[in-house]
């Protein structure tokens, strides 16, 4: 479904991504692991066109490298940024409406689905998103992207800085997303979640992939975990 080959990206003169290769299959949950600063977020941003990509990014066999952000989103890619980028001056409901790409098309998700999964959002539907708690903003950011009905959703550090109860809710949402046939590319630092829900995992180091395997294989490979993941 998503096929990334020899992807390079730069911030000014810094060569951040140095030949990234990976793929995500239809309905698959794939995690990108690695320490801070190895280029995991940049990989997602390059795929979305926010950072200029050099290399090949194919989505459903079509080259999307070089397309504009909104064109990439319309191809069926969704992006949930790590900084809970809600529109603070708009209500929760308006934020969700902003996620819809095509008002005429009924996708996999309706606003009611979001409210059912997160009753908190229903209660605060007409409250400005800027006053929500960090956890609620994270939920809203994820739900907003889902409202656009992506076929592959890329989620950057969804559990960072959240209370354990909310982390569990995020886990449930990820499972629900997968159940509806949406592929997930997850950037995560919490190994526990990634190991629990992923079909395959990649470990990144120094701007490229250093390991690929299943959760069981990674669990068994202490050397990789020590060298590239544990602090």
């Amino acid at each position: 479904m998503l096929e990334v080959t020899d992807l390079h990206a730069f911030y000014g003169k810094s060569h951040i991504l140095q030949g990234v290769n990976f793929h995500v299959g239809e309905g698959e949950i794939v995690s990108l692991l690695g320490r801070n600063g190895v280029g995991r977020s940049t990989t997602i941003k390059a795929i979305m066109g926010e950072v200029p990509p050099h290399g090949s990014i194919k989505f459903r066999g079509e080259e999307i490298s070089g397309l504009k952000e909104h064109e990439i989103a319309h191809r069926g890619l969704g992006y949930v940024p790590e900084n809970r980028d809600v529109f603070p001056g708009m209500t929760v409901r308006q934020n969700l409406i902003m996620g819809i790409k095509d008002m005429k098309k009924q996708g996999r998700w309706a606003m009611e689905d979001m409210f059912k999964m997160f009753p908190n959002l229903r209660e605060r539907a007409d409250v400005d998103a800027g006053v929500l708690s960090g956890g609620e903003q994270q939920m809203l950011t994820m739900c907003r992207t889902l409202m656009g009905d992506p076929d592959l959703v890329m989620i950057d550090e969804p559990t960072e800085g959240l209370a354990p109860k909310i982390v569990a809710q995020v886990g449930d949402l990820l499972s629900e997303i997968a159940k509806r046939g949406v592929s997930i590319l997850l950037v995560e630092q919490k190994l526990a979640i990634a190991l629990r829900i992923s079909h395959r995992l990649y470990v990144m180091g120094h701007g490229h992939m250093v390991y690929e395997g299943t959760p069981d294989e990674l669990k068994a490979n202490e050397q990789i975990r020590k060298e590239w993941l544990e602090v």
Partner: peptide, 15 residues
């Protein structure tokens, strides 16, 4: 309004 305040995020939502 969204495009004025957060153009990048707005574009990545498909606008």
């Amino acid at each position: 309004q969204a495009a004025i305040h957060k153009p990048n995020m707005t574009a990545m939502l498909g606008h």
